[in-house]
Amino acid sequence: MKKKLATVWLGGCSGCHMSLLDIDERILEVAKLADIVKCPIVDGKPFPEVDIALVEGSVTSDEHYEEILHIRKQAKVLVALGDCAVMTNITGMRNYFPLQDVMAAAYTHSPSNDGEGMWPNHAALLKLHGKVLPLQSVVTVDVVVPGCPPSADTIFYVLYELLNDRMPDLSTAQKLKYG
């Protein structure tokens, strides 16, 4: 019975997904053991029930918050992929400042809009939270894979262990990396 695998991209830069693609032909090994049922290039279906969910990025907004709670319900094993998911990383650098200052820096005072920019405010847009949170502050995380991004070797190692019903141990595998 093949496992179901899904990936999702919250508050991050998609670099971890690029690193996932860098496993190159080893994706065939993954495909033998799992079907990739959801990823950022699959159109807007709700996140399905899966065996393994790779979650890139931190929780920065109401949309991410709802999504990670939903993913936690749907996934048997939730993997926090990359430094943003594990320790907020660059996305958390706005946590040193009040949200109003961050918005003003981006939309009012940036050189391109001469102090007259409009803050985006539409019902369809996500609402930024005051503080960016790592995944484990919001939900229970089963596997953490730090790195910015984690190397393709590390991601393949983690996937291959999980797909073979083993728990990856980055410390003993000497694959820990931050940044």
């Binding site: 594990v86 040193y96 790592p134 502050s137 730090p146």
Partner: peptide, 9 residues
């Protein structure tokens, strides 16, 4: 591999 304490920022 991760930090179990809240970040102070």
């Amino acid at each position: 591999d991760h930090i179990r304490y809240p970040f102070l920022y």
